[in-house]
């Protein structure tokens, strides 16, 4: 009589914990995007390892707790056995977690070194400047990676609250970002890069990624930067190389035309 009852309790506790654990794991799996860069893919893999470890630990500990709650309810006035502890068990449940965290740390270190690899000198470079409350992206026309664009100077994209800026990048090429800020701290966060890095006054931060998917992805500032922090958004558009070159050409033409206009306006002002 006693044994099957025990087994039922154990099963009940285990299955409840498993349902809770696996349920939350699968929702988490469904939600975290897999990422669109080489670096993001690696970081997502690490995330999955962390997730599996946590779910396993959660299911084990939660089912033990639930089992204890069901099994050891007070039934009579008898005093249970007064166990004060056990050194052997303490060593076991100190030692095992140490091994687990060393494994997880090693894995995270390997991923860290991989994603922190710097781009080569001739890679496409975008200079990102954060300001309250928008972004400025500057492309150096001499620093466009493998493209064949002939020209001098820079292309500058400045966002306004009404007109959120678009960061255009070629697919399958490593791109390096240099981040800086002129006022307060901002944070460059593209969800699908699974990555963010702060823009800090008085400091230049750099990182590189290799996008692998074309498309439009939303992004925004992730460090509280003042009243309109929530509106400091931008989009990332990742396109094929030809399309990128075409976009550069068009934008450069527009901007030099604008600059010409400005020059004539200024010249006219001077004359008057």
């Amino acid at each position: 009589m006693q044994r099957p009852l025990k087994r039922i309790r154990l099963l009940a506790a285990l299955s409840l914990a498993a349902v809770l654990g696996l349920g939350s794991a699968s929702t988490a799996l469904a939600v975290q995007p897999g990422g669109i860069t080489d670096e993001a893919h690696e970081m997502h893999d690490l995330f999955l390892v962390m997730l599996y470890f946590s779910i396993a630990l959660f299911v084990i500990i939660a089912s033990a707790l639930l089992y204890a709650i069901i099994r050891f309810r007070r039934k009579d006035d008898e005093l249970p056995k007064q166990v004060h502890g056990s050194n052997r068990i303490e060593i076991l449940w100190t030692g095992l977690p140490i091994i687990i965290v060393i494994i997880l740390f090693t894995l995270s270190l390997i991923t860290l070194f991989d994603v922190e690899k710097k781009a080569k000198q001739d890679a496409l470079t975008v200079e990102v400047t954060g300001f309250q409350y928008q972004w400025q992206f500057v492309y150096d026309l001499n620093d466009l990676g493998v493209g064949e664009f002939e020209g001098e100077g820079t292309i500058t994209i400045i966002g306004t609250p009404a007109n959120e800026p678009e960061l255009v990048l070629p697919v399958n090429e490593i791109v390096e970002f240099t981040l800086q800020s002129t006022d307060v701290i901002h944070s460059f966060y593209v969800r699908d890069f699974l990555y963010k890095l702060d823009l800090i006054p008085g400091r230049i931060n750099t990182f590189s990624v290799t996008p692998r998917e074309t498309g439009v992805f939303r992004a925004q500032c992730a460090e509280l930067c003042g009243v309109n922090h929530a509106l400091m958004r931008f989009t990332v558009r990742i396109v094929e190389r030809e399309e990128f070159d075409e976009w550069i050409k068009q934008t450069a033409k527009h901007q030099s035309a604008d600059q010409e206009d400005e020059k004539t306006v200024r010249a006219n002002e001077r004359e008057q």
């Binding site: 975290q32 690696e42 970081m43 690490l46 995330f47 962390m50 965290v101 997880l104 740390f105 894995l107 995270s108 991923t111 860290l112 994603v115 944070s187 966060y189 969800r191 699974l194 990555y195 963010k196 890095l197 992730a222 460090e223």
Partner: peptide, 12 residues
């Protein structure tokens, strides 16, 4: 604590 995972999760 896994630094590369935190790159995604930090400040979210």
């Amino acid at each position: 604590a896994a630094v590369p995972v935190d790159f995604a999760l930090h400040d979210t």
